[in-house]
């Protein structure tokens, strides 16, 4: 039979396809419905947090940091409660990572503070002298892309029914209103907690530096 396949490329290709597709169908599809349910009380990311998640993606923190606490005592002692599937229900994409050059961050919001992050991201060695993490000073001057983050919120609300309220709606006007009423005050609170006057001043002028959004995101990881 195999030798016949080797003479008939079409059927050969079909054979290969069936054999490789088979595992995917059995392994992946059945669990799709079940694994997307949020844990009770889980709120979708605010737009500021989404903007921070974009910074996390842009500077590719996933290269060194995981967001997945495995159910071992050694991990729960170090990082806190092990991770649950439902906690990731709004994570598009998932950011588990596959390498811990630095520590896990899934619950870093529990045991670090905005001003600690401010010091650490500006110069990691100032708080952890032997750190090999790069300093991310450019995040203190680059502005976060709030509009794209807002576009993401609108999209996931529309396409995936992510439970946002009326404040998330398509169009420029809705975005400007959200920015003024909700986003900037949220950012100002973070900037103040980071204890850096330059950041506070920028936010007061309506500009949100990347670091403020990033810290909002890191604070949310609990």
């Amino acid at each position: 039979m195999f030798h016949w396949l080797e003479k008939n490329p079409f059927f050969f290709a079909v054979g290969v396809f069936v054999v490789i597709a088979y595992a995917g169908i059995i392994e992946i599809l059945p669990n799709f419905a079940e694994r997307a349910r949020p844990v009770k009380g889980l709120k979708p990311y605010t737009v500021l947090e989404l903007a921070g998640k974009e910074v996390y993606k842009k500077d590719n923190c996933i290269a060194c940091h995981s967001q997945l606490i495995r159910p071992f005592k050694s991990e729960t002692d170090r990082y806190g409660q092990y991770s649950l599937s439902g906690e990731y229900a709004y994570d598009r994409p998932f950011l588990w990572g596959s390498k811990r050059t630095g520590p896990d961050l899934h619950r870093v919001g529990n045991y670090r503070t905005p001003d600690w992050h401010a010091n650490h991201m500006w110069d990691p060695k100032s708080v952890v002298p032997e750190s090999i993490m790069p300093a991310y000073k450019h995040q203190f001057t680059n502005l976060a892309d709030l509009e794209t983050a807002y576009a993401e919120a609108v999209t996931v609300k529309k396409v995936f029914n992510t439970p946002y309220g009326k404040e998330i709606a398509p169009g420029k006007a809705a975005f400007e209103k959200y920015k003024k009423d909700i986003l900037l005050p949220e950012a100002l609170k973070i900037a103040k907690a980071m204890k850096r006057d330059d950041l506070v001043k920028m936010v007061e002028q309506g500009k949100v530096p990347e670091i403020v959004a990033l810290v909002a995101y890191l604070e949310r990881l609990k």
């Binding site: 992946i28 229900a89 598009r92 576009a151 398509p170």
Partner: peptide, 23 residues
């Protein structure tokens, strides 16, 4: 999907969390 907001090249994954990890 957002009424023309944000960067044109930006997208979100069709899958979330654990499903996204599986795929």
């Amino acid at each position: 999907f957002s009424g023309g907001l944000g960067a044109w090249y930006h997208s979100v994954s069709m899958y979330a969390g654990t499903n996204d990890a599986l795929v």
